[in-house]
Simulated assay, not measured.
Amino acid sequence: MIARIKFGCIALIALTLSSVVQARSMEEIDKSGRLIIGSYGNFRPFTYFEDGKFTGFEVDIGNEIAKRMNLTPEWKPMEFDSLLTGLSQDRWDMVTASFGITPERSKAVLFTEPHYCTGGIIATTKPDIKTAEDLNGKKVSVQTGSTYFLALQKIPGVQVRNMSSDNARNALLTGKVEAWVTDKFVALLMRQKEQDTKGAARPLYLGDLLFSERVATAVKKDNHELAERYNQALASMLKDGTYETISKKWFKEDVRCQ
């Protein structure tokens, strides 16, 4: 999901400077009774719409976190690359949208404890493409602003096609690119869907993980009390079995960070 925004120097400076604006304090959040959560609405199975309802693994996690904080979650699905900017402008209290923890992002936001671990994987319709070296000279689709995009910049010879999450997937399935780099759970779900579809035009093969990452919720740099309350709620979920139940509902396995 996900984990995913590439920060250039200008964006980092802008986000860092804007963080001096005071976020809603925990007292203000408690008084309002609402926890406003910025998210991305098109990253199945983590955060997406189905029959008009916002759902997914991270939505279930966020709803349970809010419940344990005695707050009502108020989700704000937006374009992925606007989420951290919106956080810096106090449009929401936190961002839950498969953001991988990176040193660059950590300069601009405060990350909570991670709520799952994953990695960027190679997905392809060609069984001979398996490794990073195999991507040399190939056209590869990837989501704009993602850690997958950053990983591809380090591989020589890759012809990167930067686009939305859906378009990156569809570019592979329609043969416009030779590989797609995405979250491993997204790819696993897509492969299962292809296997379950009779007459699927292109079988999906999964290659190597290019990297592993921890995914967490982001709050503003100065909002330590909110991060601590979040971490306490997450710890209680991990301890009492609620997290495992939610995880197995979506992935049939426990995806917590070990």
Rank of each mutant, 00 (worst) to 15 (best):
I36P: 08
T124R: 03
F57V: 05
Q195M: 12
V140E: 00
A23T: 03
D196W: 11
T118G: 10
E50T: 07
L206S: 01
I155C: 03
N136Y: 10
L15E: 10
A66W: 04
A151C: 07
L17G: 09
S247C: 00
Q22N: 12
I121K: 03
F185A: 04
R169C: 09
L238G: 07
E228L: 12
I10D: 15
D222N: 13
T47V: 02
D240V: 07
P156Q: 07
G119C: 04
L110D: 03
Y116H: 12
P45R: 06
Q192D: 14
G241V: 05
T96M: 15
K126G: 05
S88F: 06
M78I: 11
A187P: 02
Q192G: 12
D196M: 14
T55M: 11
P156E: 09
G56D: 02
G52D: 04
M190D: 15
A235T: 10
E213T: 15
G157L: 05
L189Y: 14
A97G: 04
L234V: 05
R4L: 15
R214H: 14
E244W: 08
E79A: 13
Y148L: 07
R214W: 13
L238T: 06
V181F: 01
E194N: 14
L83E: 09
L209V: 05
E228D: 15
F211S: 07
A23W: 04
V95N: 04
N170G: 08
E244D: 15
V109H: 05
V160Y: 06
V255K: 04
K221H: 13
S247K: 01
F57L: 02
D60G: 01
R161T: 10
Q192E: 14
Q159M: 10
D93M: 05
L189V: 13
G207V: 04
T47E: 09
